[in-house]
Design a protein around this nucleic acid. Structure first.
Lengths: 152, 152
DNA sequence: GTGCCACTTCAAGTCGACTTGAAGTCAAGG
DNA sequence: CCTTGACTTCAAGTCGACTTGAAGTGGCAC
């Protein structure tokens, strides 16, 4: 398979595949001229990478989850730790979701007068909730190098 | 209050307060010489900002949640929409957490042979879970301009 | 054989939320 | 009055995960 084929099959842009190779996350089986040649294994590997990303591991962490010979070396303790981390995140998000839902229907004239809202406000202020990140996970995976015209 | 006082009371670094003022998220009541002077209201304002951040709004979105005269203008539909977004995120994280917990104790010789793990893998590959973000929300709020010696 | 264009490399750019560094200002204590 | 050092501004740097652009190479259809 050439890089475009892998891109199509995996949904990962070619530029990202090169980037991942550079990072040691995937590797090609060789070259035909300059061009990379991949075998089917890269697809499973990419799935593993996607899984790791979904779980919140960084690319560097994921890279460390493969043995030098390319087989997955999965550390159960790391998984459990990440699960616990997710657990904590989930709790916060649930509190936040409930707070938002309430605020969205709360009849108080100003949100500042609503006890629920004020409670939420306090927990945010004390950092009990914790700031989340920009790229909300609802952002759908970008399909591929989308053709973008530049402005004239 | 001067900026250091606000920083201490709110836990938000002075540099961030300046940044927030520049972005229009907060404002000072005036200056004494060059120095900003804040009134107590800024603390509630900062709490509101923290709350918005916790809920996953961007700073720009938060800025739009205040009327030009500085009162909160809270859009119930935006709140409900964000709650729904959180809902979706939560679902994904729960699936991920359960998958990780299972993988952490799964007796299968290789994770690739574990049905649960493979199911997780497939959903990550199809984007059903979605990549999360770097700064895991477990990162504790940084205390303040920590005195850092530079290396010699 | 040859031209095209899909591939290649490498450097630089992007995005958001800040932080950091250098250089300047000035309120307050001595 | 003079020093001090906490404040100020403004530009640039950081971080992670990529993307983009320019310039170069070479596989393959013709």
């Amino acid at each position: 398979m050439d890089i475009t084929e892998v891109a199509k099959r995996s949904g990962v842009p070619a530029s990202t595949l090169r980037f991942y190779e550079e990072k040691g996350l995937i590797s090609s089986v060789g070259r035909r001229g300059l061009r990379r040649v991949f075998d089917a294994g890269v697809l499973e590997r990419l799935a593993l990478v996607a899984l790791g990303r979904s779980a919140g591991f960084s690319l560097d962490e994921i890279a460390r989850m493969f043995t030098p010979d390319g087989r997955p070396r999965i550390d159960r303790r790391a998984l459990a730790a990440k699960a616990d981390e997710l657990e904590r995140t989930i709790r916060k998000l649930v509190a936040m979701r409930d707070g938002l839902r309430h605020a969205a229907v709360c009849p108080a004239p100003s949100h500042l007068e609503c006890p629920t809202f004020r409670r939420l406000l306090r927990s945010a202020a004390t950092g009990a909730i914790g700031a989340r990140d920009r790229k909300s996970s609802s952002a759908p995976r970008r399909p591929d190098p989308a053709p973008r015209r530049r402005r004239p």
